Amino acid sequence: MTILLYKLLLGLIVGSIIALFSYIARLLTTSGALALIFVATVVCGFGSWPTWGLLILFFASSGCIHLVKKRINVTKTKSLVQKDHTRDAWQVLANSLPAITSLILFYYTENQLFLIGYVSGIAGATADTWGSEIGILSKSVPRSIMSFKQIEPGLSGGVSMLGSVASFFGSLLISVVFWLVYSWYPIFQLPTSLFVIVPLICGVFNSLVDSLLGATLQTKYRCPICDQITEQKQHHLKQTKQISGLSWMTNDWVNFFSGCLTVLSSWILIFYLQ
């Protein structure tokens, strides 16, 4: 318990430093910074140094991509998506809670199934974030994952070749780093190939599920002024009209549910493969 409290304190301190710089760089709102401190504290307290490093890798890589986009003034989706790219608490927690739940289960059970579930959750969040952030740079118009019709860039449910490739490499990055660190640990009985294969598959699976939920269940609105489909309740200072999806199913809920399904699918895969 003493070691746990020590790690919790260290996670609080380092998480606060990272959150402060993220807030100054406008990567996080005030609530988002507080949520990041909470997540960093929990992961550092209940996980090992490598698990904490994977979380930092996710936030750092996503933040770098966003800062590069700001440098080249990519702003064409700001008026359509529900939220801008400065993450608030709900966005931080929606992307991380499924993974850290699996990490806490690993801490108490020492079942490797839950550790890979954590990594799969982080891989999925990275794949989804990279796909969204980089996919918007595609010169081709994205298409709905359901109807394959062209949709406005940035709207949930849209896919592009560039975004799909970015999702794959985001998931691959987390999976390979996890494998490089843990494949040499003698305490693990699972085949080392699963350290890459399962998180990679589940990470890509996350981005697909996220797009499917975004296209089918996430609420969408139509602007009475410009007739564009948007995720915002107001557009051009006018109330928009809901045209599809569930009224409460925001993008944060989509991220949360896709993360839960990703972690669950990794548990199932490891259960049958080990």
Rank of each mutant, 00 (worst) to 15 (best):
H235P: 08
V198I: 15
M161H: 03
S22D: 07
S61G: 07
K69R: 14
W49T: 04
L5K: 02
S175A: 14
V181K: 01
S120I: 00
K149F: 07
T192H: 13
L137T: 13
K238V: 15
I201K: 08
L80M: 03
V254G: 02
A89H: 08
A166L: 03
F148G: 06
L67F: 03
S266A: 13
G157R: 03
V68L: 08
W267L: 09
L273I: 15
T109C: 04
T41K: 03
V177S: 01
V165F: 11
V198C: 11
T240M: 02
L34F: 10
V263H: 05
S244K: 15
I100L: 04
G124D: 05
L28W: 12
K70C: 12
G245V: 10
G203L: 06
V74F: 09
S48D: 13
G117K: 00
L10N: 07
M161A: 02
V68I: 11
V198K: 05
T262V: 09
A40W: 01
W184I: 14
C260S: 12
L246R: 12
S132L: 04
S258F: 01
V141Y: 10
Q234C: 14
I37Q: 01
K139V: 12
Y23A: 13
I151N: 06
V177D: 00
A215R: 04
Y182K: 08
S244H: 13
W90K: 09
S31G: 12
I174W: 09
F148Q: 10
G135D: 01
S79K: 14
L200K: 14
N255C: 05
S96D: 00
L137V: 13
N111L: 12
S144M: 01
I174Y: 02
L194F: 15
G154C: 12
Q189V: 10
T30M: 12
A166C: 02
C44N: 12
G214C: 00
T216M: 07
K149P: 08
S265N: 07
K233C: 12
L115Q: 02
S48H: 02
D210I: 00
T230P: 06
E152M: 05
W253R: 12
L27H: 05
S132E: 02
T30Q: 11
F169Q: 02
G11P: 15
G203H: 04
L57T: 15
Q232K: 14
L264V: 15
A99C: 03
G47N: 05
V176R: 03
V68F: 11
Q91M: 05
G135L: 00
L217Q: 09
